[in-house]
């Protein structure tokens, strides 16, 4: 019966209009959050880059600290940076794929999971979890990352793990979701010996300096990930809105066609009836 299909079409149009409105609102929220995350990231990068250049410039061949200790790798630690919430396209899957790839290279593993999505993903898998952490996706500070940094770096110092990696999404440009793996520990002696003055003397300076260097890098990775996550959510909500609008357009055409067909049919019935009466 044509009347029923019209009603059905009307119902579907209304439902999809609701979805499009929702995804459009989420897209606008993500755009605002992306701007904030990007601002924080860009404002922090000079600090972290300077800490890195300064600290790496004294990674002399003869420097000695437990962070430089190369051991046979029996167990590797991985910090996995995912998001708290979903609806951000392939953002988290890309990270998990990168982690799986890394898992092939170490005999045993200890995972430090950032974000609920990673916690859910790895809960059903047979890996040992060293800790689970959550951060607000915007506006966290260097202090907020300390529990994660202490747990993962502490595991290395205590010999629970022999190497530490971080897997996160580097923010190159909105839309470019590039999962990135970086080895945090052990550190690599790669600087040339140069004359330097240290205050306090090097053996007292080294520990706070190297610790801060590692903390800064973890902080930066989380900022990079946060901007990437917002950009992934923006793009995925933008695509969802576009899809809903395309679907809506098709449904409206179909609805109008059906309605036209119904009217045509009614008119022809009336005309036919009148002709029949005249003829009779």
């Amino acid at each position: 019966m044509p009347g029923k299909s019209l009603r059905e079409l009307r119902r579907r149009i209304k439902a999809i209009m609701g979805i499009a409105k929702l995804t459009d609102a989420m897209k606008k929220v993500a755009a605002a959050r992306l701007r904030r995350a990007q601002r924080q990231l860009f404002a922090s990068r000079p600090y972290v880059e300077a800490i890195s250049s300064m600290t790496e410039s004294i990674f002399f061949p003869n420097i000695s600290h437990p962070f430089f200790e190369e051991r046979e790798v029996r167990r590797g630690g991985i910090i996995v940076v995912s998001s708290e919430r979903g609806l951000c396209g392939g953002y988290n899957m890309n990270i998990f794929r990168e982690v799986e790839h890394l898992l092939g290279g170490v005999p045993d593993v200890l995972l430090f999971l950032v974000g609920r999505i990673a916690q859910r993903h790895f809960a059903r898998r047979p890996y040992k979890i060293g800790g689970s952490f959550s951060f607000p996706s915007l506006g966290f500070s260097m202090e907020d990352i300390l529990p994660l940094a202490r747990a993962s770096i502490g595991a290395f110092l205590q010999g629970e793990i022999d190497t530490l990696y971080i897997v996160y999404t580097h923010f190159h440009a909105p839309g470019a979701l590039i999962p990135t793996t970086r080895r945090l520990l052990p550190l690599e002696r790669k600087a040339e010996e140069r004359e330097f003055l240290f205050e306090p003397k090097l053996e007292d300076l080294l520990d706070p300096l190297l610790t801060h260097y590692l903390h800064s890098f973890i902080f930066r990775a989380l900022l990079e990930a946060s901007a990437s996550e917002q950009s992934a959510r923006f793009i995925s909500m933008d695509m969802a809105t576009q899809n809903a609008n395309r679907l809506l357009q098709n449904l409206r055409i179909q609805y109008n066609k059906e309605r036209q067909a119904l009217i045509t049919k009614e008119i022809s019935e009336i005309v036919g009836g009148a002709e029949a009466l005249k003829g009779g």
């Binding site: 300064m54 140069r194 003055l197 300076l205 706070p208 300096l209």
Partner: peptide, 19 residues
Amino acid sequence: PAEEGYWGVLARHIPSIVK
């Protein structure tokens, strides 16, 4: 302010890292 008193820096200072 360094750990053991104030530090002064002028141009062409010897390269240093100070807490």
